[in-house]
Structures are given as C-alpha cells and as structure tokens.
Design a protein around this nucleic acid. Structure first.
Lengths: 192, 192
DNA sequence: GTCTATAGCGCGATAGAC
DNA sequence: GTCTATCGCGCTATAGAC
C-alpha cells in the first residue's frame, strides 16, 4: 500500500480546510503551511485550483457513496440503515479539526461562484444521496418500519436537506448534541 | 417616506450579491458596478466591510423576525402559521435575482471565516428562529393540529435546519418545486 | 519534485481634490 | 458625498534553477 504521498497529503489538507473555511476561504498558502511545502510546489500536483477541487470533490463523493452502498447492502432493518446513514454526517461533524461540516454542504453554499464542472459535481452528489435515501425509505415502508404518509421522493429530499442544513446550523449553534437530537426526532417522525 | 438613499441602495445590492455569492464571493467593486458609484465612495457609508456586514445582518434579522412575530400574533391555526413561516423561505428562493438563498444560510456556511461580532449575529438569528418555531409547534400540539411524538425543541431545530439546508439543496438541484414538496412533506409528518 | 522569485490581478482601504 | 489615484496585501499562476 502506498504511503501518504504528497498528492494525498494535499488533498487531505485541502479537504479539512474547505470543510471549515469553504472554497473561497482557503488558499494554496494555507495548504502549504500545513503540508510543509511551498505553495508553488502544489501547482506541480494540481496546476489550477479547479484541478484540485475536481479531484477532491470526486474523491469525497466516491468515498461517501461507497460507504452508503455498503450500508444499504446489509440485511439490517431500514431504520438501522437510516441511522447509520445519518451517523456518517454526525461523524463528520466531530472528526478531526473542529467546526467541520460536510464538504458538499459548504461547497453547495458557494455554488454560484464555482466554475464548470464543479457545479455539476455538486448536483450529482445531491442526486445520488437522495436516490439512496429513497431506496432506504421505500424499503422501510415495505417492511413497516416507516409509516409516514406522502411521497418518498420528497421525504428523501427532506432528509438530505435536513442533514446538510443541520450540520451548518449545529456548527453555529447547538453543536453535535443538537444534531443528534434532530436525527432522533427525524426517526420518530418517520415511524409515525 | 425617505427615498432610497445611497446607503440603502448599497445594503440592498450587497444583500442580493451575498445571497448568491456569499460574503467571500462579493466585493466592494461588485457593489459599485450595480449601484453606479465608485468603490471608494462605499467606504464613506461603511468604512470597513465588516461595518457593512453588521448592518446588513442586523437589518435582515430584524425584518424577518418582525414578520414572523406578525405571523405568530394572528389567530390562524398553527398549521397555517407554520405554512406561512415556511413560505417566507420559499419566497426568498424565488425573489429578485435567481439562485438566491437565505442570507443567514450562506453566511452560516462561511461562519469560521467571519470576524466578531458576525458569528454571534448568526447564532442569534438561529436561536430566535428556533424559539419562534418552538412556540408554533407547542401551540399546534395543544390544539391537536400536530400529533408528533418527541421533543418540540428538537423538532424546531429540525424544521429550521431543514429550511436553511433545503434552500441550498434546492438551488443546486430540484429548484423551488422540490422545496415546496419538502415543506409539504414536513407538514404531513407533523400531522402524523 | 521542490525550490526561489516574480508576474499579474483583485481585494480592502486611505488620502486628498472637488 | 463622490471622485481620482494609489497603497499594501494576498491571491493564483508561471518561469527557471537545483
């Protein structure tokens, strides 16, 4: 297994910084100070900042969706699957440096300032997550775990909006405890 | 009634720009091009950028909370009040320039990059909104309009997170129609 | 692949004329 | 109150030595 090469170190650092400061709040200089190389050297690995962002968003999306697919593939009850899915977001909120939110929550807020194809990557991540939530919800309705009325698709969008927004709100006010309570309340509402 | 003086024009323009681009994506130069004065002239009204931001966040918060208090003060059913509250966010999404979200959603995403006392203003806005949602929810439980189980406080945080996050998600994917469907689904869940 | 050095630009902010 | 002009800074990005 390859050790953490410089390219990976740059991506890891950039991800941490963006999850706290946003794309427009992070610079190559910030990365260089953490990684321990000069900012000019970063351009060797990612010539343009957009090159770095494309790679970073792709890696993050791939990782998350792979884990989510793993959760869905289990034989656990739908409620357990949903709790595990929400747990991914909760883990992000408390991992590594403080004040971190989902990468795609903060990048989504900066959507209008992004160049192609970054906006499309954001849309793709949102759609893929909602599709997986839809699957869990319909499975839960079939088993009787969930008893809510209305459209499953709208409920999937509701949950995803809630999780992404919840991280931003919790970071500013209430912290991880409030986030956990919100998730628990969501489960209660879905169980009717 | 005083005409739209330059100071108000600057605030209006800055608000529109920030709701689309964020604080770190908007500049005095951007404002000057819309208002039609030189960027140096903006410093006459708001010497530092933070001065402008403090004034803007204060004005926005005051306006929203005043409207919300008006909604609460009516004799409408709690469900109607909640729909009107959510309607405020929906109206923002489709008002003026496209791709706008709640000012405090995008500023909240940039929270870590803000200087004092901007972070505290963000927290205040979130708390005040959750408090008003809590009032509506408990009134709805008392009247029987809402039949959900669990904590009202967590549910208030849930709704607020959902609305702020929903605007960001809807702007990127799904648009105002999805936002409306999510709100409708929320009401369904609360009515049990 | 990393370094030094620098170009070129946009930013917030200030000085001083009108 | 608005203007022109400019400062100083941080940013992305590039050139060229090692």
């Amino acid at each position: 297994m390859k050790q953490t090469d410089t390219k990976t170190l740059i991506l890891d650092t950039a991800q941490d910084l963006i999850q706290r400061l946003g794309v427009n709040g992070m610079s190559y200089q910030d990365i260089s100070e953490v990684v321990g190389i000069r900012k000019a050297s970063i351009h060797t690995h990612f010539p343009k900042k957009d090159d770095l962002l494309v790679a970073l968003l792709g890696r993050y999306s791939d990782r998350v969706l792979r884990v989510v697919d793993g959760i869905i593939a289990t034989s656990d009850e739908p409620e357990v699957k949903l709790r595990q899915y929400c747990g991914l977001f909760e883990a992000t909120l408390s991992s590594g440096s403080q004040d971190k939110v989902c990468l795609y929550a903060i990048v989504g807020a900066e959507l209008v300032t992004l160049n192609h194809p970054l906006g499309e990557q954001v849309r793709h991540f949102y759609r893929e997550n909602e599709a997986r939530l839809l699957f869990i919800l319909e499975q839960g309705r079939a088993t009787g775990d969930f008893r809510f009325t209305g459209e499953s698709q709208a409920t999937a969008a509701l949950i995803f909006s809630l999780l992404e927004g919840g991280m931003l709100i919790a970071r500013a006010n209430g912290g991880i405890v409030q986030f956990q309570q919100v998730v628990e309340q969501l489960i209660q509402l879905l169980k009717g």
